[in-house]
Amino acid sequence: MKSNLRLIYIVDDDPDDRQIILDAFLEKSPQIDYVFIENAETLLETLYAAEVELPALILLDLNMPGMMGLHALKEIRSNRLFSQIPVIVLTTSTLHQDRKTSYELGASCYIRKPASFTELVEITDAIVKLWLHEYQPQPSPPGGKKNMAGD
């Protein structure tokens, strides 16, 4: 299986939160594909059903009805097919133990949901730049040649 480098799964039980997160991503990254997933059980079912392409990234809420996000994270990390997918925990939890456990289970990053939409746009833009390699082209130095070590 290969990863679709332009696909993000947004896993959150709150439809308003899912839409706000999507809106924040779309502000700066409209070229990315997004799939909404309402809970951890559906996330795992979707991953197991993905026969050809996996997401480039999973944005995972922790506190959801049914299976908690931490349980899904543990299962993702224990499956060799999914273990390399970056999983970013995006949650309202302020508990130190949730952060600690998320990292112990293999979260790529733990982010508390911000209070403002502007902050969320900054966070989603950073996520795309860091994990999906959507960097803006850098201008070439004068003369048009990039100076690299060993040149």
Rank of each mutant, 00 (worst) to 15 (best):
residue 81 L to R: 15
residue 81 L to E: 15
residue 82 F to T: 13
residue 82 F to R: 13
residue 82 F to Q: 11
residue 82 F to M: 13
residue 83 S to M: 10
residue 84 Q to R: 13
residue 85 I to V: 13
residue 85 I to R: 14
residue 86 P to R: 15
residue 88 I to C: 04
residue 88 I to E: 00
residue 89 V to C: 04
residue 89 V to K: 03
residue 89 V to P: 01
residue 89 V to R: 04
residue 90 L to F: 04
residue 90 L to D: 01
residue 90 L to A: 04
residue 90 L to C: 02
residue 90 L to T: 02
residue 92 T to A: 12
residue 93 S to F: 06
residue 93 S to D: 07
residue 93 S to V: 06
residue 94 T to L: 13
residue 94 T to H: 11
residue 94 T to N: 14
residue 95 L to Q: 15
residue 95 L to E: 15
residue 96 H to K: 14
residue 96 H to P: 10
residue 96 H to F: 03
residue 97 Q to C: 08
residue 97 Q to P: 07
residue 97 Q to K: 15
residue 98 D to E: 05
residue 99 R to V: 08
residue 100 K to S: 09
residue 101 T to M: 12
residue 103 Y to C: 09
residue 103 Y to M: 10
residue 103 Y to P: 02
residue 103 Y to K: 12
residue 104 E to Q: 14
residue 105 L to Y: 09
residue 105 L to V: 05
residue 105 L to R: 07
residue 106 G to Y: 07
residue 106 G to V: 00
residue 106 G to R: 11
residue 106 G to C: 07
residue 106 G to M: 07
residue 107 A to T: 07
residue 107 A to W: 02
residue 109 C to T: 15
residue 110 Y to I: 06
residue 111 I to E: 03
residue 111 I to P: 04
residue 112 R to M: 10
residue 113 K to V: 02
residue 113 K to L: 01
residue 113 K to F: 01
residue 114 P to M: 02
residue 114 P to W: 00
residue 115 A to D: 14
residue 115 A to F: 04
residue 116 S to R: 12
residue 117 F to G: 03
residue 117 F to H: 08
residue 117 F to S: 04
residue 117 F to Q: 04
residue 117 F to E: 04
residue 117 F to R: 09
residue 118 T to Y: 00
residue 118 T to C: 00
residue 119 E to A: 11
residue 120 L to K: 05
residue 120 L to Q: 03
residue 120 L to F: 03
residue 120 L to A: 02
residue 120 L to W: 02
residue 121 V to R: 07
residue 121 V to S: 05
residue 121 V to N: 05
residue 122 E to R: 12
residue 122 E to N: 14
